[in-house]
């Protein structure tokens, strides 16, 4: 029998989702009475890459590692920026054009910390966490990885 506390922990540490992300539901959970600024970033699927039409993306993750790492990133950001709320969820599986692939929400007393922490979190997720995108193009070809212009 698993103690209920562990169930709770497992439920909380679920930063990877195979189901569509409900952005507004996540946002609704991010309010805090001491927060003057909530920043919500939704990373969404673009319909093109280098001029080629993208039909959809397929995301894969090493889920156990990704969950641990995103949890650690949120903890680090919370400590570094004094966040009141820090949330992040990344999709795996097929994600259609204009659907969110990743959502990051940060709440703090003031907007500067919220903005900076949000960028800190999404940068780390993109560059460090074992999650991979595969772009599926209109001509049927696919391309793993890439598409990051922030280096």
């Amino acid at each position: 029998m698993i103690p209920s506390a562990l169930y709770h922990q497992a439920a909380v540490a679920n930063y990877i989702s195979a189901e569509p992300l409900d952005v507004m539901s996540l946002f609704a959970q991010a309010h805090h009475e001491n927060a003057g600024a909530i920043v919500l970033f939704s990373g969404e699927v673009r319909n093109s890459h280098n001029g080629k039409e993208v039909v959809f993306l397929e995301y894969e993750a090493k889920v156990s590692m990704a969950n641990k790492m995103i949890g650690a990133i949120l903890t680090e950001a919370t400590e570094r920026y004094g966040l009141l709320v820090a949330k992040a969820v990344h999709r795996i599986g097929k994600v259609a054009v204009s659907e969110p692939a990743v959502v990051v929400i940060t709440a703090a007393g003031h907007r500067k910390e919220s903005y900076e922490a949000n960028e800190f979190i999404i940068d780390k997720i993109k560059h460090e966490v074992p999650i991979w995108k595969c772009e599926i193009f209109a001509d049927g070809k696919k391309l793993w990885g890439g598409n990051c212009n922030c280096h």
Binding site: H90, I131, W132
Partner: peptide, 9 residues
């Protein structure tokens, strides 16, 4: 586990 460069987001 062999982990290619991350490309999430």
């Amino acid at each position: 586990s062999i982990i290619p460069p991350s490309s999430g987001g």
